[in-house]
Amino acid sequence: MAAAHASPRVLPGFGLTLGFTIGYLSLIVLIPLAAVFLKTATLSAEQFWAQISAPRAVASYRLTFGASLLAAGINAVFGLVLAWALVRYSFPGKKLVDALVDLPFALPTAVAGISLAAIYAKNGWLGQYLEPFGIQVAFTPLGVLVALVFIGLPFVVRTVQPVLEDLDTEYEEAAASLGASRWQTVTRVVLPAVFPALVTGFALAFARAVGEYGSVIFIAGNLPLVSEITPLIIITKLEQYDYAGATAIASVMLVVSFALLLVINLLQAWAAKAGRREG
């Protein structure tokens, strides 16, 4: 991988820095990750299949991926609205709102988890007002959704916001001068320009939500077959010293994560290309 032009380079340090980079990457990330697949390989195909297709595991996939998808969708809509407000309008406290959008990046997930549980518990800050309507959030799949919306929001806002900012007013002025209504301008000129970024933000939020653990477990209730997420199954199996079982499920999640990483890379390349075309 490293071999490049044979010619000596003007700036020194290529061998040193690349060597250290690859060495450190291998030691910390690649070799330990390979352990998952090597461990999984010790299982027979039937054992592996039994582990990953157990009803409890399948229910957890459904919850994890379903809730992640829904949360990313909610974030795509509200994140776009929030980004729009932050870029286009002036209002008091805007700087603060802008800065606090990063809160889910900065706030430890466990803190978010217990706080969301305190808000949505039956007698909680919001839970007490939802209870009379028969809406239970905490300790149900709905709780999982709320936690995943929380942690995913900044991904959408921070991907869409710079694209909206860079969008030259000239495009909209051109559209208006050609007789387009404001609605037509927004839906046919502005939204297509931010669409690649929006999809990328959606994918990032989804990828993050799939692996999320800390903020979810406090509010989920963790009932097997109902509100148990896949990462929790891995932990439960580990606590029972079922390493093979934990690893089998983990390998499924890893494959999904790698696939998502690939998709996100392609999306980002697409968004960058679209951005260049606009510019």
Binding site: I31, G211, Y213, I264
Partner: peptide, 18 residues
């Protein structure tokens, strides 16, 4: 970028395996 797309739970698991 890989560690960002790996679930934190798996990040712990891999070191248990090693």
């Amino acid at each position: 970028d890989l560690p960002f797309s790996v679930s934190p739970v798996i990040a712990g698991l891999i070191y248990v395996l090693v």
